[in-house]
Design a protein around this nucleic acid. Structure first.
Length: 646
RNA sequence: GCCGUUGUAGCUCAGGGGUAGAGCACUUCCUUGGUAAGGAAGAGGUCGUGAGUUCAAUUCUCAUCAACGGCUCCA
């Protein structure tokens, strides 16, 4: 007998060799039908794998993250089985579950192309195979046997995988007519997969290396019930409606033009209002935090970027230089070197530090054409940039203050889902990807970690993602499309100070090099507004809304009254327009609702007689009648306090 | 940059070897209507661009540009 400990602490005895599925069945048949896998002593196992020692056990179902990923990974195998039927001779690389939902399988179809129609055919085949209730069978196998199996099959990709594996760690999983080299685990049988959708076809480099052959990747998603697939598809539809590219066009925020160039957004009047409101917020915040504003040119001579160290590391991401009078000029892809030159322009004493320079800097980066994505990845960007020059003793307070500024902003925008990524260097890439100063890397990484730990900031540490000049903290956020983006960045730089020979005179009258903090809490206008469009689904809070109030006269008898209201509101610095078309009020309301204008003032003969306005809030409906002064006072409060949407 | 898909009116889309269509938007007129679409008429397109095949190309072929889905990349 073995002892099984359940999550609630209960302990029950079972015969050795019992499976998680048996245990579930001993509790209830209903539970047994839902079990997808099990967590046995901290490892995710097949629910059908015999347990032979005392163990802690958690049964995993669709509601568990590991249950879902087991389900999806098993679905990848099911898809592969269908692929083998429809594309005989297909060779397989890997087919994992993906965090954001679903799975993919990378395959070599021997030069054959796969089409949307093929996907529908594959789905049908998967459904047919699933109905057979085929059991996923696990088998431990020797390396020699495994090699001979795939050698015979002619699958060089699996043979490549086998090279790194040794006897004792190789398992095969078989369901129906499909056998795969796989670590597992898998769900008990294919019958659990009730609904499936192959979502798209893509190319993917073998092993993720662009020098390698491109394999065919098919993405899919499956569910234990048709209803859940329907809900998933509905959610995708909703996400599409929130896509910043769609909203940006509908709301007149930005546009692209072929003649201007890819990745070069044109900010339209409505978008420009948002830019200016964001800048107003940033400038006030930064002024209060002791920053000084500067303005620098968009181009500089080559030597500046040689000194900064950017050219050797990032030349590929810069627009090619303009050459005139024997001199090369580059469009700036970062503001730092320019700021360093401002620091260097006047001698500095320790009394001048911390010295904080801020600029909404325009930068140009030559992102590869395939990387461009709406406003999220562009070639011309406006960065909420600043550089803080400080002593090591000041570093803690300065770095902490920057992190606190992030949090202050996130509160204003209601951003509650984010992760701080602490990116550190990789010692093996010193001198290649990173400045070759091992002691300084250690020292600055320790300084940053110290801030994070002492301020109780949750973070994850990621190796080999630092900037070339020092460690950094990136703030990751998720758009409604499910993509992950770096919104803000806070970086330490121990390298450029030296390279630019930046110095201050310390208390002992010696020259000392300052530490530099690069920070951009609001990221770039492009990415931030792209994010906000999706975050608010285009319904901006009043302080950011391009048009804050629309006055809707019911008939043209109240046009004159509308004009007088317009003047009052404009005098109160409210962004307002009158809809003076000869349309019915229902039509005017509909159009204004769709334009996502926060407030509508409906006025007719009644309001005119009482000198009042009927207030309607976008998405909320009629709020009743009030005096114009009362309305102005309320909306001004909402604007000044930068209130989030109710 | 790589693999794949797409490109028709301002927008969303239909069509198809014999030089084009809908809805919305737009213009004009009628309508003055109380909280999500009043009516009529009109204007608008070298069917992304360039070349080829053909008596004839927007439709077929090739190239190119751009967008989209991924991969790679992201100071």
């Amino acid at each position: 007998m073995i002892k099984i400990t359940f999550p609630d602490g209960a302990v029950r005895e079972y015969n050795s060799g019992v499976t998680a599925l048996d245990i579930a069945r001993s509790i209830s048949e209903g539970l047994a039908r839902k079990v997808l896998a099990a967590n046995v002593n901290g490892q995710v196992w097949d629910a059908t794998r015999p347990i032979t020692t005392d163990a802690t056990l958690t049964l995993l179902t669709w509601t568990d993250k590991d249950g879902k990923s087991t389900f999806w990974h098993s679905s990848a195998h099911l898809m592969a089985e269908a692929v083998e039927v429809i594309f005989p001779g297909a060779k397989f690389w890997v087919g994992p579950a993906i965090d954001t939902g679903g799975f993919y399988y990378d395959m070599d179809l021997g030069g054959r192309q796969i089409t949307e129609d093929d996907l529908r055919q594959l789905e049908a085949k998967m459904a047919e195979l699933a109905k057979k209730n085929a059991v996923y069978q696990r088998k431990e196998i020797s390396k020699a046997e495994a090699i001979s199996y795939f050698a015979e099959k002619g699958d060089e990709y699996k043979l490549d995988l086998l090279e790194k594996l040794e006897d004792g760690q190789i398992t095969f999983y078989t369901q129906g007519n499909f056998t795969d080299l796989c670590r597992g685990p898998h769900i008990p049988n294919t019958g659990l997969i009730k609904a499936m959708r192959l979502t798209n076809i893509a190319g993917a480099y073998w092993k993720g290396d662009e020098r390698n052959k491109m394999l065919t990747r098919v993405y899919g998603v499956t569910f234990p019930a048709q209803k859940e697939l329907d809900e998933y598809l509905l959610m995708l539809e909703e996400a599409k409606k929130r896509d910043h590219r769609k909203l940006g066009k509908e709301l007149g925020i930005f546009t692209f033009d072929e003649q201007v160039g890819p990745g070069l957004p044109l900010w339209m009047p409505n978008g420009t209002v948002i830019i200016e409101e964001l800048e107003r917020l940033a400038k006030k915040t930064e002024e209060q935090a002791g920053y000084k504003r500067v303005v620098t040119p968009n181009i500089a001579k080559e030597s500046l970027y040689i000194t900064s160290g950017h050219l050797p590391y990032y030349q590929d991401s810069m627009f090619p230089p303009m050459e005139l009078e024997g001199e090369k000029y580059y469009l700036k892809s970062m503001n730092c070197p320019h700021h360093h030159k401002i620091f260097a322009a006047e001698p500095k004493s320790y009394k001048d530090l911390p010295y904080r320079l801020a600029e909404y800097g325009t930068c140009y980066r030559y992102e590869q054409s395939g990387e461009l994505f709406g406003l999220m990845r562009v070639r011309c960007l406006h960065m909420n940039d600043a550089h803080i020059y400080c002593t090591k003793a000041q570093f803690y307070d300065e770095f902490r203050a920057v992190n606190e500024m992030y949090l202050k902003y996130f509160k204003i925008f209601g951003i509650d889902k984010y992760v701080m990524r602490f990116s550190v260097h990789a010692p093996s890439k010193l001198g290649i990807k990173y400045i070759d100063e091992p002691e300084l890397w250690k020292e600055t990484e320790d300084l940053v970690r110290d801030v994070l730990i002492r301020t109780n900031t949750p973070y994850i540490e990621v190796p080999d993602e630092a900037a070339f000049y020092g460690p950094k903290i990136d703030v990751q956020i998720w758009s409604t499309i499910g993509r992950e983006f770096t919104l803000a960045t806070n970086q330490v730089d121990f390298a450029q100070g030296k390279r630019f020979k930046l110095e201050f005179t310390n208390k002992d009258n010696h020259a000392e090099t300052p530490l530099i903090i690069h920070r951009a809490p609001l990221g770039t206008h492009e990415r931030f507004i792209g994010f906000l469009l999706e975050h608010y689904a285009g319904k901006f809070p009043v302080w950011l809304a391009p048009l804050q109030v629309k006055i809707l006269p019911i008939t043209d008898k109240s046009l004159e009254y509308a004009q007088s209201l317009l003047v009052s509101l404009k005098n109160a610095d409210i962004r307002v327009e009158v809809d003076d078309r000869s349309e019915k009020i229902g039509k005017k309301i509909r159009d204004t609702e769709l334009a996502k204008v926060p407030y509508m003032l409906v006025i007719g003969e009644k309001e005119m007689a009482d000198n009042k306005v009927a207030v309607r809030r976008q998405g909320k409906g009629d709020l009743g009648v009030k005096g114009i002064e009362e309305f102005i006072a309320e909306i001004k409060k909402e604007i000044i306090e930068r209130t989030s949407n109710p």
